[in-house]
């Protein structure tokens, strides 16, 4: 069998935590594991990658003005696939990954399953959610090169020390003529921590009563280093931006703890957060769907409970 490759996602030169579960999933007996880092100081991340079993670190260098261009990134990964004899490629099913992995798959006309939460690399079987999260599909994929997008936080990272070497790959000549990256900017009302990466999400729905009350959730989330989400009802009411929406047509999340505040829990909302490890529902309405589809429920007003929780966390 040929080699396995993983595309490592970085944030300001640091390896995002969510990579380690993916790397854990990518390890297979007797196959070399290549980690691709783009425009990063490979020596600085070597220890961390070694500790999870990456045997070859490929330091891909792109021209600085091209590094945020997903077409250029995809082309460089394709060159690496060929150069390093990769037959299995994994990446994260994050917003950045959703804009990169399918490009690689499309250029190669190779099969790809996104948002996998488990993968059998021997048989090329991937498990993923379908039908708005109501079913689990096991997809068999076959091809010379196969790709998998791994759902963040789906797999518990397990260390496996190896020693690795750094290989340079010069991709500075790669450009994209018909698809140009102009700028990356941040929406004013952005959430501080991305929903996909947060360990704790506090989400508000109709029970928040207005947009200003979301600051109550932000204050609490800050204490927990978590992110604030919202239901479609809250987004459609104009209280918070769409980027905060959790659900079928928003972000699909799997945090360790999801605190649903004044969210009734439509099927569509549930589809976006049902893979959370622990769900805590706070609602005045005991008949809200999420009150019976959670781990803990509290019949109370969120506007009283959350400030109290924030206070408690401050003093703790």
């Amino acid at each position: 069998m040929a080699n396995i490759g993983v595309i490592i996602e970085l944030d300001n030169g640091r390896i995002k935590e969510i990579n380690f579960g993916m790397i854990t999933l990518a390890r297979a007996k007797g196959r070399e594991l290549f980690g691709f880092v783009i425009n990063a100081d490979a020596a600085a991340v070597k220890d961390e990658l070694e500790s999870y079993g990456i045997t070859q670190i490929v330091a891909v260098s792109l021209a600085p003005d091209q590094e945020n261009n997903p077409v250029v990134r995809a082309k460089s990964i394709i060159k690496c696939i060929k150069k390093f004899n990769i037959s299995t490629l994994l990446g994260l099913s994050t917003p950045a990954g959703k804009d990169l992995l399918p490009r690689v798959a499309a250029f190669l006309e190779a099969p790809l399953v996104m948002d996998c939460f488990s993968i059998d690399l021997k048989q090329n079987l991937a498990r993923t959610s379908r039908h708005s999260g109501k079913t689990i599909a096991t997809i068999k994929i076959a091809g010379d090169i196969v790709l998998f997008g791994v759902r963040p936080k789906a797999v518990e990272p397990i260390e496996a020390w190896v020693s690795s070497q750094i290989v340079q790959f010069d991709g500075s000549h790669i450009v994209s003529e018909d698809f140009r990256h102009i700028k990356r900017w941040v929406d004013d009302k952005k959430t501080e921590i991305s929903l996909a990466e947060a360990d704790v999400i506090i989400a508000g729905g109709r029970g928040m009563k207005n947009g200003d009350n979301f600051s109550i959730l932000s204050k609490c989330a800050e204490k927990l280093n978590g992110a604030v989400g919202a239901s479609r009802a809250a987004v459609d009411s104009g209280w918070v931006p769409y980027s905060m929406q959790v659900g079928l047509t928003g972000e699909k999340v799997s945090p360790r703890v999801y605190i649903a505040c004044g969210i009734s829990g439509s099927i569509q909302h549930f589809a976006g957060m049902k893979t959370s490890t622990i769900i805590i529902t706070i609602n005045t309405d005991n008949n809200a769907c999420l009150m019976s589809d959670c781990d803990y429920f509290i019949q109370a007003d969120v506007l009283e409970i959350i400030p109290e929780l924030t206070k408690h966390l401050e003093n703790d």
Binding site: N68, N69, T94, P95, A96, D99, E177, D178, F179, R180, H181, I182, K183, R184, W185, V186, D187, K189, K190, T191, E192, I193, S194, L195, A196, E197, P241, S243, E251
Partner: peptide
């Protein structure tokens, strides 16, 4: 749209 409210602007032919 990227995560965390970040946005990429692209120009395509």
């Amino acid at each position: 749209e990227l995560s965390g409210g970040a946005v990429d602007t692209y120009e395509m032919c």
